[in-house]
Design a protein around this nucleic acid. Structure first.
Length: 260
DNA sequence: ATGTCGCATTCCATGCGA
């Protein structure tokens, strides 16, 4: 069973890439972020024609998350608990069959938080607190769990091309990284780091300043696994080649394979 | 060199978010 996450930066602009990726990689579950669409403009029929069911939480213009799955999602949760006034579409969760049971999967689009010193960064930190709280609740279920998405967090200096460039950025501030470590400290395992110690592994390259050509990237798309999922972890993959496609997303897909 | 995208409106140019 393979579960993959991809920030597509507009589902409508990226539909052909998305269909191409589904056909070449055939993930069982694909979590999407930044679909930038609501239900009425989401290309549901094309995706269903490729053999995937669709659950989504959309929003006009910005944000928006979805989960595509070969098997229909059950027990779907739309939105991150903890703040009923939060209207940004950044969290979607559900379960799919896995072995003799299920795996619970979430598609996460964690706030960017820039510029620091503004309400945007306050919102990011508060959102991370809510994610920690909800993840604690999910851990009590003691089931395979994969929290996948664009975390907008560079976990360590080796996860970016030049740490000095990112020193005062919301993606890399000590306070941001500390909150990310809270997720790990409640017992979640970051899948890519569980399978490799390599540096220069990136999942995002800015459109600007020739970042892709210079391999000036950052690793901000992550899959966090509960112990029950980590026990089944076989491998991870960063689908870097998609960044070289014509008119690409600035993020590439990242996937895990679990046995069973 | 504050350099590129995608979206929406103020609508063929500009502001916002990333």
């Amino acid at each position: 069973m393979r579960i993959t996450t991809w920030n597509v930066n507009s589902i409508r602009q990226r539909l052909h890439h998305l269909i191409a990726f589904l056909k070449e990689d055939e993930p069982d579950v694909l979590c999407l972020q930044e679909i930038k669409a609501q239900e009425d403009s989401f290309p549901r029929l094309e995706i269903e024609a490729a053999g995937y069911s669709v659950e989504m939480l959309g929003q006009k213009t910005f944000n928006g998350v979805a989960i595509l799955s070969k098997h229909r999602l059950e027990d779907v949760r739309r939105g991150l608990p903890g703040d009923d006034s939060d209207e940004q579409a950044r969290y979607l969760e559900g379960v799919v069959p896995f072995g003799s049971g299920v795996v619970r999967v979430a598609s996460i689009y964690l706030p960017n938080g820039n510029p620091i010193g503004t309400e945007k960064y306050t919102y990011k930190l508060a959102w991370m607190d809510r994610l920690v709280s909800h993840a604690r609740d999910l851990m009590k279920l003691e089931e395979p769990l994969v929290l996948a998405g664009d975390y907008n967090v560079i976990p360590e200096p080796r996860d970016c091309h030049d740490p000095l460039v990112w020193a005062n950025d919301a993606l890399f501030l000590p306070q941001t990284r500390a909150k990310f470590r809270k997720l790990l400290n409640i017992g979640l395992t970051e899948a890519v780091r569980a399978t490799t110690e390599a540096d220069k592994l990136y999942t995002f390259w800015d459109y600007q300043a020739g970042a892709w050509q210079k391999n000036n990237g950052i690793r901000i798309d992550h899959l966090l696994l509960s112990p029950q999922a980590t026990d089944k972890l076989v491998s991870t993959v960063i689908h870097k080649h998609t960044r070289a496609w014509e008119k690409p997303s600035d993020h590439v897909p990242v996937g895990v394979e679990l046995t069973g």
